Simulated assay, not measured.
Amino acid sequence: MELRQLEYFLAVAEEANFTRAAERVHISQSGVSAQVKALETELGAELLDRSGRIARLTAAGAAALPYARVALDAAADLREAIDEINGLVRGRLTVGMVTGCEITPLFAALAAFHREHPALDLELVEGNSADLIASVIAGTADLALVGVAGAVPPHLGALVVADEGLIALVPPDSPVVGPAGLPLTELVSYPLVTLPEGTGIRSSFDEACVTAGLIPDVVLVASAPGAVAELASRGMGVAVLSESMASVHPGLVSVPITGVDVPALLALVWRPRSSPALDALLPHCRREFGDTTTP
């Protein structure tokens, strides 16, 4: 007894016609008829009454039909289970991260995942947040660590890992240094060094400037936070970064920027119901970052 024989028998039973059944399973009518006849021979009973224009179930056919359905459903479940295992054994997982990423919990999550599934290929891609989000939506990336302004994109699963204000980062002798924060209206009078457009930090800053009707003087743009800070340390301008980015540069002074109502978020984003490999990686991410998941 073969699964295809059960499939063809089920098709004829549900279509009540050999021609329509053949069209459904994409083989010739004679092929369907031959396979159903072989099944009847093996079972020792006619399953279909072929005497009229409509193929009707015999008593034996009616008794066999539910078992045929169960067998085919079980075969489909088996195939799905094996496909899921193969997805974790031979699959590929593409993870995007913002250029110059220094977020160690992401690396810890990837390392733990790799230890559990060493045969699965991991691919890391860097880019700005807008491009990475587009890659996740398009399905060319499974997961991405991105910066966004104010809120994570709708219709994506998300784990917000940081919700921060913006910081002006300057050398200790800079005139920007003072006991209070630096208002956005004053900040824009200085030459600025920022991350590129399309990053979460830059988007928060740009949105705040647009809302306030301000035009910032951005003199230099660097893709990595460390490069932005290094340029500021050499007097090239005031760096605009997030609190966590600024904290790793103790040689510079961090001055909170006031008047920015749009927070800069750092988040992992993914398409729901993406892949078995992603399902296996996400628990590691939640454990390393802490779980504040958006469904």
Rank of each mutant, 00 (worst) to 15 (best):
Glu2Leu: 14
Leu10Arg: 15
Val12Tyr: 02
Asn17Ile: 14
Glu23Arg: 09
Val25Ser: 09
His26Pro: 00
Gln35Thr: 11
Lys37Val: 07
Lys37Gly: 02
Ala38Asp: 09
Glu40His: 10
Leu43Lys: 10
Glu46Lys: 14
Arg50Phe: 10
Ser51Trp: 06
Ala63Asp: 15
Ala63Val: 13
Ala68Asp: 09
Arg69Phe: 01
Ala71Pro: 09
Leu72Gln: 06
Leu72Asp: 04
Ala74Cys: 03
Ala75Gly: 09
Gly91Ala: 11
Arg92Lys: 14
Leu93Ile: 12
Thr94Lys: 07
Val98Asp: 09
Thr99Phe: 08
Thr99His: 15
Cys101Thr: 15
Ala109Cys: 10
Ala111Pro: 01
Glu116Val: 12
Leu132Cys: 06
Ser135Asn: 14
Val136Asp: 05
Ala141Val: 11
Asp142Cys: 06
Val146Gln: 04
Val148Gln: 02
Gly150Ala: 03
Pro154Leu: 05
Leu166Thr: 05
Leu166Ile: 03
Val170Ser: 04
Pro172Leu: 01
Pro172Gln: 01
Ser174Met: 01
Val176Ala: 01
Pro183His: 12
Glu186Lys: 13
Leu187Ala: 07
Ser189Ile: 04
Leu195Cys: 06
Thr199Cys: 11
Arg202Glu: 14
Arg202Tyr: 08
Ala208Tyr: 06
Gly213Leu: 08
Pro216Tyr: 06
Leu220His: 11
Ser233Thr: 13
Ser233Tyr: 03
Met236Phe: 12
Val240Asp: 09
Glu243Pro: 03
Met245His: 12
Leu252Gly: 15
Pro256Ile: 04
Pro256Cys: 07
Thr258Asn: 00
Ala264Ser: 15
Ala264Glu: 02
Val269Ala: 05
Arg273Cys: 13
Arg273Trp: 07
Ser274Thr: 13
Ser274Gly: 10
Ala277Leu: 04
Leu282Pro: 10
Arg286Glu: 13
Asp291Trp: 00
Thr292Gly: 14
